[in-house]
Nucleic acid binder design. Structure first.
Lengths: 193, 193
DNA sequence: ATTTTCTAACTAACTAGTTGGTTGGATTTT
DNA sequence: AAAATCCAACCAACTAGTTAGTTAGAAAAT
């Protein structure tokens, strides 16, 4: 928008907002707290982002690409892709939480998720891997992708199981990653089914 | 507590609270709205449940038990268990949403999830199925359970993919269930690994 | 008559969003 | 060069509405 506005202030607001929205969701986040944490006056926040939902949208868009895009997708090697996602979710749990909250609070629709270019590209890559005989052809690409994502995020903040934390013993991380890679290999490997 | 208090009023409050908490989460739910929807005065709500969080706790415990009792666990046939969970999540999406919100808002800890009797029983059943050679022994029971749960809830409100709805064409449900059953069979079947 | 269940009205604190005005540095005018 | 002007960035204080939780007492039940 306005190129003159201070990038530093904008950035501080986005950082503070990311933390607060990730921790408390949209309804639970507090505009005053975000402004205070950023060391910025509340009126500035409104000048930059319009309203609370506009601020969330900016935060979400900023990280949305990073959630799914920063991790390179390899349809030929889904186990490794899933492990990379596991690591990414571990390193930046706030991204997963933002996405989960956006879904629950209804600010992103199904169509926005399924019809995004990032998803379309992945589906095509899976279809190609199926034609090449590297991924089982008996499960639709959309379901392969959905299941791989769900499995990779099993131990994330979204999951209903114990959440993985960076401080966990590395043996625990290795154990989960092996389980994940092996389960995905068995589920989608072209050898069977 | 007091055996005299009207069960009908209590039930109406729990029903209204279930809907509101499932739709908006704890921070987003409104005590006045819940009381109005239940046709009960707000002061009654506080007499029955103490405070907002106490009401959420009651709602959560009520449905957590229900879902555990409603879906029988079959360690020998994990694909079918997962499909039953898919159906249960489809029929009662509010249960999944309640659980997701409870996790995100931090009112249930990891230990409460992993150390509950319901989970312990399932883990032992999986270990037995592994000894019987009906489930792959190369993945720990806790990870088998975590992955099966995550996969079954791929298309639920928790998932990051498109959400399944009761109104979807039955072909779509069948397609997802086949994908789910096949993926779980491949991932945890004892034939491989 | 007394206990229990219910209710309207209340409050203190909090919330998102606004207002009117200040600051400090760059640009223009003299 | 000095004075006048401009403007984006900034802020303390405020508003109007909402929130969880309380109270004092009426109605109903036993």
């Amino acid at each position: 928008m306005s190129p003159r506005k201070s990038d530093a202030t904008r950035r501080r607001l986005l950082d503070a907002a990311t933390a607060d929205f990730a921790a408390h969701g949209i309804a639970g986040a507090r505009v005053d707290r975000i402004a205070a944490d950023a060391g910025v006056n509340k009126a500035q926040l409104y000048a930059y982002f319009g309203d609370k939902l506009g601020l969330f949208g900016a935060v979400f868009r900023l990280h949305a690409d990073a959630v799914v895009n920063a991790v390179p997708f390899t349809a030929d090697d889904l186990p490794r892709y899933a492990v990379r996602l596991y690591d990414a979710a571990l390193e930046r749990p706030e991204l997963v939480r933002l996405a989960a909250w956006a879904r629950l609070e209804g600010v992103v629709t199904d169509n926005q998720v399924t019809e995004s270019p990032a998803v379309t590209v992945k589906l095509q890559a899976i279809a190609q891997a199926q034609r090449d005989g590297r991924v089982t052809a008996s499960i639709e690409p959309q379901d392969v992708l959905a299941l791989v994502l769900a499995m990779a995020l099993t131990w994330s903040a979204v999951g209903l199981s114990a959440t993985a934390a960076p401080g966990d013993p590395s043996a625990a991380h290795d154990r989960r990653k092996r389980a994940l890679a092996q389960a995905i290999s068995g589920a989608f490997g072209a050898g069977r089914g």
